[in-house]
């Protein structure tokens, strides 16, 4: 069985947030909800200073604490490893959000879908996109399951200007993702949380100034 995942090469990433906005338009998420985002940081003191860019999304953990704690069964792992929320089952208890060490879950507060980005009312686009969501439930990156099912790559992957996001199946040992991880010592985020993420990173810290 497949285990879909991603390898993100941080050496290439320029922190442009094209992924952030590509995801925003793909899903039309409401204000302050970002399935994809870039965590930035200034490191070092002047003049030995750099900025680091860490693009993140749901790690689609194989041992997903968010699924583990979900009392309703709304959170589940698909056969191909994608961690999803069934909005019809979610009761909005936020236990999954608390449990995710990566802060990759978003709760649709009541009233949130009644206004769009521009205050009162919804734009034409928001009216269509928000129909996918339900207030009082949890939403998260779905690894673009709807695209993947059509044989497309996730929105954040296809748009990435530097092509630093490699999407594919983590399962085959000889596959592209595993070789990238092997050859470059790829690592997931917060391995100490034992979540077995499906998103791996190559070479985070900048070469020293």
């Amino acid at each position: 069985m497949a285990r879909l995942g991603m390898v993100i090469d941080l050496r290439r990433c320029i922190g442009c947030n094209a992924c952030t906005i590509a995801c925003k338009q793909e899903h039309g998420t409401p204000e302050d909800v970002h399935f994809a985002r870039v965590v930035t940081r200034e490191v070092g003191t002047y003049p030995a200073t750099r900025r680091t860019f860490l693009p993140v999304l749901c790690n689609h953990c194989a041992d997903a604490p968010c699924v583990e704690v979900c009392p309703s069964g709304a959170s589940y792992i698909r056969a191909d490893g994608i961690v999803l929320v069934d909005r019809e089952k979610c009761i909005g208890c936020r236990a999954c959000a608390v449990a995710c060490p990566y802060m990759n879950r978003h709760f649709l507060e009541r009233g949130l879908l009644r206004h769009g980005y521009n205050g009162d009312g919804l734009s034409v686009l928001e009216a269509v996109k928000f129909a996918e969501f339900e207030e009082g439930t949890m939403i998260k990156c779905n690894l673009c399951a709807h695209r993947v099912d059509q044989g497309l790559e996730p929105a954040c992957v296809v748009t990435c200007p530097t092509e630093c996001r490699f999407f594919g199946d983590l399962e085959p040992e000889a596959g592209r993702l595993q070789s990238l991880i092997r050859d470059h010592g790829g690592k997931p985020l917060l391995p100490e949380c034992n979540t077995r993420p499906s998103i791996y990173y190559l070479d985070g810290e900048p070469r020293q100034a």
Partner: peptide, 25 residues
């Protein structure tokens, strides 16, 4: 009062095999 979808509260009991919340219910 806290739940996002209180009408579905009963679902909270569905996964006692792994969720402490469900066990609590």
């Amino acid at each position: 009062l806290y739940l996002g979808r209180p009408a579905r509260f009963w679902r909270a009991a569905l996964r006692p095999d792994r969720s402490w919340i469900a066990r609590g219910i």
